[in-house]
Design a binder for these strands. Structure first.
Lengths: 341, 341
DNA sequence: CTGAAAGCGCTTACAG
DNA sequence: CTGAAAGCGCTTACAG
């Protein structure tokens, strides 16, 4: 087994006290420059690294953030929503930039709530990501708040929901893309994705969608909204029955790109041409959306920015600053699936 | 600020010593059952959680694994290969099952090598994931080995490469899928994806591909192999020039599904029908491969199993057991892009 | 500018 | 079965 050097070993070799070693390594101005250099040189030579457990224990902080991902919909690991994966990437990057490590944990709603990361001093704060069932969620959030855990959540704001959330303007996104569809002459709109309060993000997109329709003087038909959670399969199944029952639909707004990919497949299997017979649009602008056939028109959320915002807000919270809900802009990305030329 | 209970607080309330509290909480048989229950009850009431920093420091272990992801190809966060995302999922699951937390870090090859996770006692071992440039990689691996860091790597085995690796049989995968293509009557094969020793996984797939071709008595044409790294764009660009120069090609094997998606797009843009004019097959069986149009024939790697294997092997290594390279089986998944009916 | 000392909150030999 | 004590490896007031 390898035996690690401690600050005492360095002190011994440098002929100074251990406290001086500790100060030198942390670049304390209290230490003579020459001493500092000498200590650092020896530390480098011994391949010395500060023991984080000791340092964290002493400082009562971990310089670590925990990212909890919820995805109750499925037990299949491969179905992680690519949008969240982008978020994982940007969150990881943002926390590393801030000098924090990132613990990650996938959880089912049904799981024991693993949010003891902060309680055990393994993390200074928690980021929550996921479109799990929001109603179940609520309780757990309250619990976190009660324990005075520092956390931020990606998602819709909700007056009566505890904690801080950062999210995109889902209502606006649903509105914008639907308006775009209307401007290209579509008349009969369907929406695939849950629109109840169990999935507030999807609901907001749906409400924006509806607003655009009524503003245009078109009719909203309740039967044209069908439930789906964010997987290709779920979208496929939902669209198949929807379209076969309602041949008059000429545009489908999907609550996510994953759903849209399934919906497009269903259209093809039913002999509907996209976009000639029917327009299909998504939401998220996941990487593959440019490569579907036809390329998917969708709503982009800036995941880079989102990751940064999540991390900086959480850090602010940890530092005791006052933070409020933030809503980010969205943008319609026009491709071919809507018939846009 | 919340003030956390310590084991001393519990000791006080339970009327026992702090050492007894510690033992009781760890379910030591040394402690009287009744005392144990009482201590636990009080701990639960105070919402007490063992301080991991203190506990880890004392035990000189962290019960944490670090997952390092390399992806040098791009600075765009959204382009994380979905295959790796599946792996992240299964690794997270496997480590949580083993009672370990998971630190995650995306790194560029150019980065300072962050593998001090183990040196700082933040992690007991490291899992390396990524198809970065293997030649650069090599040095860093040697360094890890020198420092006696515990690590396992996802990927091809390489005689002269340091450390333990777990991977799928890429050669066999390349062989099997090419053979399948041959059996459907294709004659002129191209391969899109790097085939040099900078990307040994891709290379192995290519070599398997070549073996199948020569075994069938067909001709291998060097010009039909073009470089690409694992993104849709890269595949698209590679295929566009390949196909326009060599109209005779009737089958393209891609080193990854992402590449294949780009290749399919290029085929379409050039007016080639898939699979009628040209067959396209991928590698990885990422979730979206079922939803491309036509659905992509590909090679499946069992990511669930891979994640488990990676974690259990690493833990064995940490426990000082002797471990050797493991190669997992692959399986051809037949869909429509190869012309299979 | 430097050192001796206390203490972060645990776990675990050691003694009874 | 239980307690007093040492110690994991740091950081940082305190004193000089």
């Amino acid at each position: 087994m390898k035996v690690k050097a401690t600050s005492f070993d360095i002190a011994h070799l440098a002929g100074v006290s251990q406290s001086t070693v500790s100060r030198a390594l942390r670049d304390s101005p209290l230490v003579n420059q020459e001493t500092r250099d000498r200590v650092k040189a020896i530390a480098a030579e011994l391949n010395y690294k500060v023991d984080k457990n000791a340092s964290n224990l002493r400082q009562q902080q971990s310089r670590t953030l925990a990212l909890l991902l919820f995805e109750d919909l499925t037990t299949d690991d491969s179905l992680i929503n690519p949008f969240f994966l982008s978020m994982i990437g940007s969150i990881t990057k943002a926390s590393s930039l801030a000098g924090y490590d990132l613990l990650i944990s996938f959880q089912n709603m049904s799981d024991d709530w693993h949010a003891e990361f902060e309680d055990t001093n393994k993390a200074d704060g928690i980021i929550l990501l996921g479109y799990g069932d929001f109603v179940d969620y609520q309780d757990k959030l309250s619990q976190l708040e009660e324990q005075q855990t520092h956390f931020v959540r990606w998602g819709a704001e909700d007056k009566n929901h505890p904690g801080l959330s950062i999210g995109c303007d889902n209502f606006q996104g649903g509105f914008d893309i639907t308006q775009h569809l209307i401007s290209t002459g579509r008349k009969t709109f369907a929406f695939v994705g849950g629109a109840d309060d169990h999935a507030p993000e999807f609901q907001a997109r749906y409400l924006g969608h509806c607003k655009a329709i009524s503003e245009a003087g078109l009719k909203i038909n309740k039967h044209y909204q069908v439930e789906a959670f964010s997987t290709e399969n779920s979208g496929y199944d939902a669209a198949k029955s929807l379209i076969s029952q309602h041949a008059e639909i000429d545009a489908i707004c999907c609550a996510s790109d994953l759903i849209a990919i399934g919906v497009m497949q269903a259209c093809k299997d039913l002999g509907k041409r996209i976009p000639d017979d029917i327009a299909v649009v998504g939401y998220d602008n996941i990487p593959v959306s440019r490569f579907t056939n036809p390329a998917l028109t969708t709503v982009a959320q800036d995941t880079i920015r989102a990751g940064e915002l999540l991390v900086t807000s959480l850090l602010a919270l940890i530092n005791g600053e006052q933070i409020t809900h933030q809503s980010m802009q969205v943008e319609v990305v026009q491709r071919q699936s809507c018939g846009h030329k």
